[in-house]
Nucleic acid binder design. Structure first.
Lengths: 194, 194
DNA sequence: GTCTATATGGCGATAGAC
DNA sequence: GTCTATCGCCATATAGAC
Protein backbone atom coordinates (compact mmCIF):
# COMPACT_ATOMS: atom_id res chain seq x y z
CA UNK A 1 0.00 0.00 0.00
CA UNK A 2 1.36 3.40 -0.97
CA UNK A 3 1.95 6.13 1.58
CA UNK A 4 -0.80 8.19 0.03
CA UNK A 5 -3.36 5.41 0.45
CA UNK A 6 -2.21 4.79 3.98
CA UNK A 7 -2.63 8.47 4.78
CA UNK A 8 -6.11 8.58 3.24
CA UNK A 9 -7.30 5.41 4.95
CA UNK A 10 -6.06 6.56 8.34
CA UNK A 11 -7.39 10.08 7.84
CA UNK A 12 -10.91 8.74 7.25
CA UNK A 13 -10.90 6.97 10.59
CA UNK A 14 -9.41 9.84 12.53
CA UNK A 15 -11.49 12.58 10.93
CA UNK A 16 -14.58 10.49 11.68
CA UNK A 17 -13.49 10.19 15.30
CA UNK A 18 -12.30 13.72 15.96
CA UNK A 19 -13.77 15.94 13.28
CA UNK A 20 -11.89 18.28 10.97
CA UNK A 21 -10.46 20.70 13.50
CA UNK A 22 -10.07 17.98 16.12
CA UNK A 23 -7.42 16.14 14.14
CA UNK A 24 -4.05 17.82 13.74
CA UNK A 25 -1.59 17.08 10.97
CA UNK A 26 0.92 16.08 13.64
CA UNK A 27 -1.44 13.46 15.05
CA UNK A 28 -2.16 12.10 11.60
CA UNK A 29 1.56 12.01 10.80
CA UNK A 30 2.23 10.06 13.96
CA UNK A 31 -0.59 7.63 13.19
CA UNK A 32 0.80 6.80 9.75
CA UNK A 33 4.40 6.89 11.01
CA UNK A 34 5.53 9.66 8.69
CA UNK A 35 6.61 13.24 9.17
CA UNK A 36 4.22 16.14 8.72
CA UNK A 37 6.29 17.31 5.77
CA UNK A 38 5.84 13.94 4.06
CA UNK A 39 2.06 14.38 4.22
CA UNK A 40 2.40 17.82 2.71
CA UNK A 41 4.32 16.26 -0.12
CA UNK A 42 1.18 14.32 -1.10
CA UNK A 43 -1.47 16.95 -0.38
CA UNK A 44 -1.35 20.72 -0.83
CA UNK A 45 -3.05 21.48 2.50
CA UNK A 46 -5.26 20.04 5.23
CA UNK A 47 -8.50 20.86 3.52
CA UNK A 48 -7.53 19.14 0.27
CA UNK A 49 -6.49 16.10 2.26
CA UNK A 50 -9.86 16.06 3.98
CA UNK A 51 -11.83 16.28 0.76
CA UNK A 52 -9.79 13.54 -0.84
CA UNK A 53 -10.26 11.33 2.20
CA UNK A 54 -14.03 11.78 2.01
CA UNK A 55 -14.04 10.92 -1.69
CA UNK A 56 -11.77 7.95 -1.01
CA UNK A 57 -14.24 6.61 1.54
CA UNK A 58 -17.12 7.15 -0.84
CA UNK A 59 -15.53 5.34 -3.72
CA UNK A 60 -16.39 1.71 -3.11
CA UNK A 61 -20.01 1.84 -1.97
CA UNK A 62 -21.79 1.73 -5.30
CA UNK A 63 -22.09 -1.99 -5.96
CA UNK A 64 -23.04 -3.19 -2.49
CA UNK A 65 -26.73 -2.98 -3.26
CA UNK A 66 -26.48 -4.18 -6.85
CA UNK A 67 -27.37 -7.78 -6.08
CA UNK A 68 -30.58 -6.67 -4.37
CA UNK A 69 -31.76 -4.72 -7.39
CA UNK A 70 -30.65 -7.42 -9.79
CA UNK A 71 -32.23 -10.27 -7.87
CA UNK A 72 -35.38 -11.84 -9.26
CA UNK A 73 -37.30 -11.19 -6.05
CA UNK A 74 -40.67 -9.50 -5.73
CA UNK A 75 -40.82 -5.79 -5.04
CA UNK A 76 -41.66 -6.46 -1.41
CA UNK A 77 -38.72 -8.79 -1.00
CA UNK A 78 -36.43 -6.31 -2.70
CA UNK A 79 -37.45 -3.63 -0.23
CA UNK A 80 -36.68 -5.98 2.63
CA UNK A 81 -33.35 -6.86 1.06
CA UNK A 82 -32.45 -3.22 0.56
CA UNK A 83 -33.25 -2.32 4.15
CA UNK A 84 -31.18 -5.23 5.41
CA UNK A 85 -28.23 -4.27 3.18
CA UNK A 86 -28.49 -0.65 4.26
CA UNK A 87 -28.23 -1.61 7.90
CA UNK A 88 -25.37 -4.02 7.27
CA UNK A 89 -23.38 -1.41 5.36
CA UNK A 90 -23.94 1.18 8.07
CA UNK A 91 -22.95 -1.22 10.81
CA UNK A 92 -19.95 -2.56 8.97
CA UNK A 93 -18.41 0.69 7.82
CA UNK A 94 -18.95 2.88 10.83
CA UNK A 95 -16.14 5.26 9.93
CA UNK A 96 -17.80 6.08 6.66
CA UNK A 97 -21.13 6.47 8.39
CA UNK A 98 -19.68 8.85 10.96
CA UNK A 99 -17.99 10.90 8.29
CA UNK A 100 -21.36 11.17 6.55
CA UNK A 101 -22.96 12.29 9.77
CA UNK A 102 -20.47 15.09 10.16
CA UNK A 103 -20.94 16.18 6.58
CA UNK A 104 -24.71 16.26 6.94
CA UNK A 105 -24.46 18.14 10.20
CA UNK A 106 -22.30 20.87 8.74
CA UNK A 107 -24.97 21.12 6.04
CA UNK A 108 -22.96 23.12 3.55
CA UNK A 109 -25.43 23.39 0.63
CA UNK A 110 -22.79 22.93 -2.05
CA UNK A 111 -21.34 19.88 -0.33
CA UNK A 112 -24.84 18.45 0.13
CA UNK A 113 -25.50 18.68 -3.58
CA UNK A 114 -22.22 16.95 -4.35
CA UNK A 115 -23.07 14.21 -1.89
CA UNK A 116 -26.60 13.67 -3.15
CA UNK A 117 -25.74 13.72 -6.82
CA UNK A 118 -22.27 12.25 -6.77
CA UNK A 119 -22.70 9.54 -4.18
CA UNK A 120 -26.20 8.50 -3.20
CA UNK A 121 -28.23 9.34 -6.26
CA UNK A 122 -28.24 5.91 -7.95
CA UNK A 123 -29.36 4.04 -4.87
CA UNK A 124 -31.97 6.60 -4.03
CA UNK A 125 -33.47 6.37 -7.50
CA UNK A 126 -33.69 2.59 -7.30
CA UNK A 127 -35.45 2.88 -3.97
CA UNK A 128 -37.77 5.54 -5.32
CA UNK A 129 -38.74 3.30 -8.21
CA UNK A 130 -39.39 0.39 -5.89
CA UNK A 131 -41.62 2.43 -3.60
CA UNK A 132 -43.56 3.79 -6.56
CA UNK A 133 -44.11 0.25 -7.74
CA UNK A 134 -45.37 -0.84 -4.32
CA UNK A 135 -47.62 2.15 -3.67
CA UNK A 136 -48.05 4.40 -6.70
CA UNK A 137 -50.49 6.75 -4.98
CA UNK A 138 -48.10 7.71 -2.18
CA UNK A 139 -45.41 10.38 -2.09
CA UNK A 140 -42.42 8.22 -3.00
CA UNK A 141 -39.83 10.71 -1.79
CA UNK A 142 -41.37 10.82 1.67
CA UNK A 143 -41.58 7.04 1.91
CA UNK A 144 -38.06 6.48 0.58
CA UNK A 145 -36.54 8.95 3.03
CA UNK A 146 -38.50 7.32 5.83
CA UNK A 147 -36.85 4.01 5.06
CA UNK A 148 -33.38 5.52 5.14
CA UNK A 149 -34.11 7.64 8.19
CA UNK A 150 -35.35 4.70 10.22
CA UNK A 151 -32.29 2.61 9.44
CA UNK A 152 -29.94 5.48 10.13
CA UNK A 153 -31.55 6.31 13.44
CA UNK A 154 -31.40 2.80 14.84
CA UNK A 155 -27.72 2.52 14.02
CA UNK A 156 -26.52 5.86 15.28
CA UNK A 157 -28.71 6.18 18.37
CA UNK A 158 -28.27 2.67 19.69
CA UNK A 159 -26.02 3.78 22.58
CA UNK A 160 -28.77 6.16 23.67
CA UNK A 161 -31.73 3.86 23.04
CA UNK A 162 -30.25 1.15 25.25
CA UNK A 163 -30.95 3.34 28.25
CA UNK A 164 -34.69 3.67 27.75
CA UNK A 165 -37.25 1.35 29.34
CA UNK A 166 -38.43 -1.43 27.08
CA UNK A 167 -35.07 -1.99 25.42
CA UNK A 168 -34.14 -5.59 24.69
CA UNK A 169 -30.78 -6.95 23.63
CA UNK A 170 -32.34 -8.27 20.41
CA UNK A 171 -32.85 -4.64 19.36
CA UNK A 172 -29.23 -4.43 18.36
CA UNK A 173 -29.41 -7.40 16.01
CA UNK A 174 -29.50 -6.17 12.41
CA UNK A 175 -32.09 -8.71 11.29
CA UNK A 176 -34.48 -7.60 14.03
CA UNK A 177 -34.11 -3.94 13.16
CA UNK A 178 -34.47 -4.69 9.45
CA UNK A 179 -37.58 -6.80 10.01
CA UNK A 180 -39.19 -4.09 12.11
CA UNK A 181 -38.54 -1.35 9.57
CA UNK A 182 -39.67 -3.54 6.69
CA UNK A 183 -42.86 -4.40 8.51
CA UNK A 184 -43.55 -0.82 9.45
CA UNK A 185 -43.18 0.45 5.92
CA UNK A 186 -44.88 -2.41 4.09
CA UNK A 187 -47.83 -2.52 6.47
CA UNK A 188 -48.27 1.19 6.11
CA UNK A 189 -48.28 0.92 2.32
CA UNK A 190 -50.85 -1.87 2.47
CA UNK A 191 -53.44 0.17 4.31
CA UNK A 192 -53.62 2.78 1.61
CA UNK A 193 -53.63 0.30 -1.23
CA UNK A 194 -56.10 -2.04 0.43
CA UNK B 1 -28.59 38.89 32.32
CA UNK B 2 -25.40 37.97 34.15
CA UNK B 3 -22.12 37.49 32.35
CA UNK B 4 -22.17 33.82 33.20
CA UNK B 5 -25.57 33.31 31.58
CA UNK B 6 -24.52 35.30 28.56
CA UNK B 7 -21.42 33.13 28.21
CA UNK B 8 -23.43 29.91 28.56
CA UNK B 9 -26.13 30.97 26.11
CA UNK B 10 -23.60 32.05 23.50
CA UNK B 11 -21.47 28.96 24.06
CA UNK B 12 -24.42 26.69 23.29
CA UNK B 13 -24.92 28.31 19.91
CA UNK B 14 -21.25 28.36 18.99
CA UNK B 15 -20.43 24.86 20.23
CA UNK B 16 -23.41 23.60 18.25
CA UNK B 17 -22.11 25.35 15.15
CA UNK B 18 -18.42 24.57 15.42
CA UNK B 19 -18.06 21.65 17.80
CA UNK B 20 -15.87 21.50 20.88
CA UNK B 21 -12.44 21.88 19.34
CA UNK B 22 -13.76 24.15 16.59
CA UNK B 23 -14.61 26.94 19.03
CA UNK B 24 -11.73 28.75 20.71
CA UNK B 25 -11.97 30.64 23.96
CA UNK B 26 -10.87 33.75 22.08
CA UNK B 27 -13.79 33.49 19.68
CA UNK B 28 -16.21 32.94 22.51
CA UNK B 29 -14.76 35.86 24.42
CA UNK B 30 -15.17 38.11 21.40
CA UNK B 31 -18.74 36.92 20.88
CA UNK B 32 -19.75 37.82 24.43
CA UNK B 33 -17.63 40.98 24.42
CA UNK B 34 -15.45 39.97 27.33
CA UNK B 35 -11.81 39.04 27.75
CA UNK B 36 -10.66 35.44 27.82
CA UNK B 37 -9.58 35.91 31.41
CA UNK B 38 -13.10 37.01 32.37
CA UNK B 39 -14.47 33.71 31.10
CA UNK B 40 -11.87 31.83 33.10
CA UNK B 41 -13.09 33.68 36.14
CA UNK B 42 -16.47 31.95 35.77
CA UNK B 43 -15.33 28.51 34.62
CA UNK B 44 -12.26 26.48 35.62
CA UNK B 45 -11.48 25.35 32.08
CA UNK B 46 -12.91 24.86 28.61
CA UNK B 47 -14.27 21.40 29.30
CA UNK B 48 -16.19 22.50 32.40
CA UNK B 49 -17.65 25.38 30.42
CA UNK B 50 -18.79 22.96 27.73
CA UNK B 51 -20.46 20.61 30.18
CA UNK B 52 -22.24 23.43 31.92
CA UNK B 53 -23.43 24.83 28.59
CA UNK B 54 -24.93 21.46 27.65
CA UNK B 55 -26.73 21.22 30.98
CA UNK B 56 -27.92 24.80 30.62
CA UNK B 57 -29.45 24.00 27.23
CA UNK B 58 -31.15 20.91 28.60
CA UNK B 59 -32.78 22.63 31.50
CA UNK B 60 -36.01 24.03 30.06
CA UNK B 61 -37.42 21.33 27.76
CA UNK B 62 -39.60 19.30 30.08
CA UNK B 63 -43.02 20.95 29.87
CA UNK B 64 -43.28 21.52 26.11
CA UNK B 65 -45.22 18.31 25.53
CA UNK B 66 -47.34 18.48 28.67
CA UNK B 67 -50.40 19.89 26.93
CA UNK B 68 -50.43 17.01 24.47
CA UNK B 69 -50.45 14.41 27.20
CA UNK B 70 -52.96 16.33 29.28
CA UNK B 71 -55.36 16.99 26.42
CA UNK B 72 -58.60 15.02 26.31
CA UNK B 73 -57.85 13.71 22.80
CA UNK B 74 -57.98 10.11 21.69
CA UNK B 75 -54.79 8.08 21.69
CA UNK B 76 -54.46 8.46 17.95
CA UNK B 77 -54.84 12.21 18.14
CA UNK B 78 -52.35 12.37 20.97
CA UNK B 79 -49.79 10.53 18.88
CA UNK B 80 -50.32 12.99 16.05
CA UNK B 81 -50.02 15.88 18.47
CA UNK B 82 -46.83 14.50 19.97
CA UNK B 83 -45.22 14.06 16.56
CA UNK B 84 -46.16 17.57 15.57
CA UNK B 85 -44.78 19.00 18.83
CA UNK B 86 -41.58 17.00 18.44
CA UNK B 87 -40.98 18.44 15.00
CA UNK B 88 -41.80 21.96 16.12
CA UNK B 89 -39.42 21.75 19.07
CA UNK B 90 -36.64 20.40 16.88
CA UNK B 91 -37.17 23.06 14.24
CA UNK B 92 -37.48 25.86 16.74
CA UNK B 93 -34.50 25.10 18.93
CA UNK B 94 -31.96 24.01 16.36
CA UNK B 95 -29.00 24.82 18.56
CA UNK B 96 -30.20 22.41 21.18
CA UNK B 97 -30.89 19.81 18.53
CA UNK B 98 -27.41 20.16 17.06
CA UNK B 99 -25.82 19.90 20.48
CA UNK B 100 -27.80 16.70 21.01
CA UNK B 101 -26.56 15.39 17.71
CA UNK B 102 -22.95 15.94 18.68
CA UNK B 103 -23.49 14.31 22.05
CA UNK B 104 -25.11 11.26 20.47
CA UNK B 105 -22.36 11.03 17.91
CA UNK B 106 -19.63 10.98 20.50
CA UNK B 107 -21.64 8.19 22.13
CA UNK B 108 -19.93 8.20 25.49
CA UNK B 109 -21.89 5.50 27.36
CA UNK B 110 -21.94 7.38 30.66
CA UNK B 111 -23.12 10.56 28.99
CA UNK B 112 -25.77 8.62 27.08
CA UNK B 113 -27.19 7.24 30.30
CA UNK B 114 -27.32 10.69 31.82
CA UNK B 115 -29.08 12.01 28.75
CA UNK B 116 -31.62 9.21 28.60
CA UNK B 117 -32.47 9.18 32.27
CA UNK B 118 -31.98 12.82 33.15
CA UNK B 119 -33.48 14.48 30.10
CA UNK B 120 -35.65 12.40 27.80
CA UNK B 121 -36.99 9.70 30.07
CA UNK B 122 -40.35 11.25 30.96
CA UNK B 123 -41.34 11.98 27.39
CA UNK B 124 -40.20 8.59 26.21
CA UNK B 125 -42.30 6.85 28.84
CA UNK B 126 -45.40 8.79 27.85
CA UNK B 127 -44.85 7.84 24.25
CA UNK B 128 -44.24 4.22 25.20
CA UNK B 129 -47.52 4.13 27.08
CA UNK B 130 -49.39 5.65 24.17
CA UNK B 131 -47.99 3.14 21.70
CA UNK B 132 -48.84 0.26 24.01
CA UNK B 133 -52.39 1.54 24.20
CA UNK B 134 -52.67 1.78 20.43
CA UNK B 135 -51.09 -1.57 19.62
CA UNK B 136 -50.52 -3.73 22.70
CA UNK B 137 -49.16 -6.68 20.72
CA UNK B 138 -46.28 -4.75 19.16
CA UNK B 139 -42.81 -4.03 20.51
CA UNK B 140 -43.48 -0.59 21.97
CA UNK B 141 -39.81 0.37 22.24
CA UNK B 142 -39.24 -0.28 18.54
CA UNK B 143 -42.32 1.69 17.52
CA UNK B 144 -41.58 4.60 19.85
CA UNK B 145 -38.02 4.94 18.62
CA UNK B 146 -39.28 4.78 15.05
CA UNK B 147 -41.45 7.80 15.70
CA UNK B 148 -38.57 9.79 17.12
CA UNK B 149 -36.13 8.61 14.47
CA UNK B 150 -38.39 9.62 11.62
CA UNK B 151 -38.93 13.11 12.99
CA UNK B 152 -35.25 13.55 13.72
CA UNK B 153 -34.17 12.43 10.29
CA UNK B 154 -36.48 14.76 8.39
CA UNK B 155 -35.25 17.73 10.35
CA UNK B 156 -31.54 17.10 10.24
CA UNK B 157 -31.24 15.74 6.71
CA UNK B 158 -33.41 18.31 4.98
CA UNK B 159 -30.44 20.06 3.32
CA UNK B 160 -29.43 16.72 1.81
CA UNK B 161 -32.92 15.47 0.92
CA UNK B 162 -33.63 18.60 -1.10
CA UNK B 163 -31.15 17.40 -3.69
CA UNK B 164 -32.82 14.10 -4.48
CA UNK B 165 -35.35 13.60 -7.25
CA UNK B 166 -38.96 13.75 -6.12
CA UNK B 167 -38.40 16.46 -3.54
CA UNK B 168 -41.15 19.07 -3.21
CA UNK B 169 -41.02 22.34 -1.35
CA UNK B 170 -43.94 21.20 0.81
CA UNK B 171 -41.60 18.57 2.30
CA UNK B 172 -40.07 21.20 4.53
CA UNK B 173 -43.39 22.25 6.04
CA UNK B 174 -43.69 20.81 9.55
CA UNK B 175 -47.36 19.89 9.20
CA UNK B 176 -46.63 17.87 6.06
CA UNK B 177 -43.78 15.96 7.70
CA UNK B 178 -45.86 15.39 10.82
CA UNK B 179 -48.84 14.14 8.81
CA UNK B 180 -46.68 11.74 6.85
CA UNK B 181 -45.03 10.26 9.93
CA UNK B 182 -48.34 9.99 11.77
CA UNK B 183 -49.92 8.23 8.81
CA UNK B 184 -47.00 5.89 8.41
CA UNK B 185 -47.03 4.81 12.03
CA UNK B 186 -50.78 4.65 12.58
CA UNK B 187 -51.43 2.79 9.33
CA UNK B 188 -48.76 0.31 10.23
CA UNK B 189 -50.30 -0.28 13.65
CA UNK B 190 -53.72 -0.78 12.09
CA UNK B 191 -52.64 -3.66 9.90
CA UNK B 192 -51.52 -5.77 12.80
CA UNK B 193 -54.53 -4.97 14.95
CA UNK B 194 -57.03 -5.40 12.12
C1' DG C 1 -15.50 40.81 37.84
C1' DT C 2 -12.91 42.48 34.52
C1' DC C 3 -8.80 43.93 32.57
C1' DT C 4 -3.70 43.72 30.28
C1' DA C 5 0.16 41.06 29.77
C1' DT C 6 2.35 36.88 29.34
C1' DA C 7 3.81 31.91 29.83
C1' DT C 8 3.88 27.66 27.36
C1' DG C 9 2.92 24.82 23.84
C1' DG C 10 0.53 23.00 19.57
C1' DC C 11 -1.02 24.45 15.19
C1' DG C 12 -0.62 24.64 9.78
C1' DA C 13 2.73 25.16 6.62
C1' DT C 14 7.54 25.72 4.43
C1' DA C 15 12.78 25.43 3.44
C1' DG C 16 16.26 22.78 2.21
C1' DA C 17 19.23 18.56 2.93
C1' DC C 18 19.41 13.72 1.56
C1' DG D 1 9.58 10.82 -0.85
C1' DT D 2 11.09 11.54 3.36
C1' DC D 3 13.55 13.83 6.73
C1' DT D 4 14.98 17.78 10.42
C1' DA D 5 14.48 22.34 11.58
C1' DT D 6 11.97 26.28 11.78
C1' DC D 7 8.55 30.24 10.98
C1' DG D 8 4.64 32.76 12.56
C1' DC D 9 0.44 32.28 14.61
C1' DC D 10 -3.16 31.01 17.71
C1' DA D 11 -4.45 27.91 21.33
C1' DT D 12 -5.42 27.24 26.58
C1' DA D 13 -4.52 28.99 30.72
C1' DT D 14 -2.48 32.11 34.49
C1' DA D 15 -0.61 36.35 37.16
C1' DG D 16 -1.49 40.39 39.02
C1' DA D 17 -3.34 45.26 38.66
C1' DC D 18 -7.72 47.80 39.13
Amino acid sequence: MSSKEKILGTAIVLFAQKGYSGLSMRQLAQAVDLSVAAIYHHFPDKNALYLEAVRFAFSDKEQVFAQVWESGCSAEEKLGGFIRSLIDVMLQDRDFHRLMQREIQEADPERMQLLAQGVFNRQFCFLLQLVTELAPEQDAHLVATSVIGLAKYYIECQPLLKNFPGWKSEHERPEVIAAHITNLVINSLKVKTA
